[in-house]
Design a protein around this nucleic acid. Structure first.
Length: 486
RNA sequence: GGGUCGUUAGCUCAGUUGGCAGAGCACCGGAUUUUUAAUCCGGUGGCCACAGGUUCGAAUCCUGUACGACCCA
């Protein structure tokens, strides 16, 4: 980092000198606003009309390239919408022409002039007036190869966005996706709610929390790992269809599929069960594909799948039993340990449930490519789900899996407060992740009565990864967490 | 946590068997009135990620550390 320091200082020195020159000429290098008549995209769209009426346009953007020819200059500008060539002539601008020498690649400028086509056919602004809008002091990444260093791209995302405009599109697509998600649930009669991010007791998932301290209340607080327990309180309160698009925080490792802060949508609907939620997820996926894609197929990491209702359903325990050759529900601890050993899973620190889920991930989930509902999980790994109506060792739960990745998780929600207390106690006794103390207020809410309810959680970052065909979660999160530099 | 790979100029990258540190773009100076990766002439810029070691001599070989990527856990 210190290597190029003096080089940068030299460039900055040159440019700071230009700032001084501008000040001497009574030109503010950082003025307050610019009245734009057209974006560059608008100029392209309405070129015929504008060039016929000889209208003077005012546009602005960042200088990306400068091609000087003595008494003329061509420059390429970029705004958010597009690029545009501008053409400056000394015979048109007179003394002001030399002011452009104080401008550099990376500066924001405003230009006024007529729009015309050069002899090579490029739409160009013939500049009659120009002004600095913000002076750049540091050299931009290289114009042709862009910025490739993935570490700089993540650490200094603004440079990535400047140098690689296609990256800007990915994040706009992500925003469009989130908008569609919101619209889908709004259109289906759900109400968007906001529940606490800072929680005195965390819960609703299996994860370690980030802990903080609230001075005024003199107590520890946690950043939420899920908002399940709060949205269920709203169902108790009488809402029947609610959702929240939420940022959750899990104090765990970072990899291709995990960022410690991530986005979820959680959805709760009264008077339905997990079958009803499966229907909802099928509709939801079709809606997204119909609005984001040309077909109901999806390509991710060179594999293509088709989304066709009804999605495939496989039973969690049946699939796992078949692979393992024994019944996990009646298996002895030793059998599970042996299987973990066989498949390279470090089982020593894991609870029974965690062992089962690791085995499932390794033997089943990662091989599921087609859109699939894995249903009816063991009770031991699902403390918030209702017991299966036909088998008390199971719960009514599904995970929606595509390309080996869990996109959604849903239950017939447990609403029996006595049963829920037992599950929490078991969870605590087994020292499972996701609970440090029993949330008495939540249990009290259930004691007032929560109607039958289906609940759903969808990982928005992973959904974005898959829908936008990006190989890493960092490619759909603007500022992913990285270790400290140095 | 383990394994593999990477880190050389602001950016993108070369660097042969261990023998003076290179190119393109950017930057600086000059020329240039339709260029568009403009062109032409000249120039500045590097503690080769960091710390040790081997060697007459290390960007290059060895060990460790940091950061990153991928794979595994």
């Amino acid at each position: 980092m210190t290597l190029g320091f003096f080089r940068i200082l030299f460039t900055m020195d040159e440019r700071l000198n230009k700032v001084t020159e501008l000040h001497k000429m009574k030109i503010n290098p950082y003025p307050y606003k610019y009245e734009r008549t057209h974006t560059f995209a608008e100029l392209r769209e309405s070129f015929e009309k504008i060039s016929q009426t000889a209208e003077i346009v005012a546009s602005c953007g960042r200088i990306l390239a400068v091609r000087g020819h003595g008494k003329t200059v061509f420059a390429t500008l970029a705004d958010e919408s597009s690029k545009m060539q501008v053409y400056l002539r000394q015979d048109k601008l007179g003394d002001r022409f030399k002011v452009f020498e104080l401008f550099d690649i990376g500066d924001f400028i405003g230009v006024k002039g007529n729009v015309f086509k050069t002899k090579t056919g490029e739409i160009t602004i013939l500049v009659s007036d120009f002004t600095i809008l913000a002076k750049n002091l540091r050299p931009l990444p290289e114009k042709w190869h862009g910025l490739k260093d993935i570490e700089i791209r993540y650490r200094k995302r603004y440079l990535d966005l400047i140098a690689n405009p296609e990256i800007r599109e990915i994040f706009k697509e992500r925003t469009r996706l989130v908008g569609l998600i919101r619209r889908f649930f709004d259109d289906h009669g759900f109400v968007e709610m906001e529940t606490p991010i800072l929680q005195p007791i965390y819960g609703g998932g299996e994860a370690n929390p980030f802990k903080t301290y609230y001075n005024a209340l003199e107590r520890d607080m946690y950043l939420r790992i899920a908002d399940e327990l709060y949205l269920k309180r709203l169902i108790v309160g009488g809402y029947e269809k609610v959702y929240e698009i939420c940022r959750d925080f899990r104090n765990e490792g970072i990899d291709r599929f995990h960022n410690p802060e991530f986005s979820m949508i959680e959805v709760y609907q009264a008077y339905t069960d997990y079958e009803g939620i499966m229907d909802l997820v099928e509709c939801f996926m079709e809606y997204l594909l119909d609005n984001l894609s040309d077909s109901r197929t999806m390509v991710f990491c060179d594999r293509e799948v088709e989304f066709k209702r009804p999605f495939k359903r496989i039973k969690y325990t049946e699939a796992l039993n078949e692979k393992l050759g024994f019944d996990i529900l009646s298996a002895k601890e030793g059998e599970l340990d042996q299987s973990c050993r066989t498949h390279g899973i470090d089982y020593k620190v894991l609870s029974t449930g965690a062992k089962i889920d690791k085995l499932f991930g390794e033997l089943i989930q990662k091989h599921i490519i087609e859109p699939t509902f894995v249903i009816d999980h063991p009770k031991v790994i699902s403390p918030l789900a209702k017991v299966h109506r036909k088998d008390e060792r199971l719960v009514e739960r599904f995970e929606f899996i595509v390309f080996g990745t869990e996109l959604a998780n849903a239950f017939s929600e447990l609403n029996d407060p006595v049963e829920q207390r037992k599950r929490f106690e078991t969870q605590l006794a087994q020292k499972q992740e996701g609970i440090s103390e029993i949330d008495e207020d939540f249990l009290e809410a259930l004691e007032y009565g929560m109607p039958p309810c289906g609940g759903l959680g969808i990982g928005i970052d992973r959904l974005a990864m898959i829908m936008l065909n990006q190989p890493s979660i960092r490619d759909v999160i603007l500022f992913p967490q990285l270790k400290k530099e140095k």
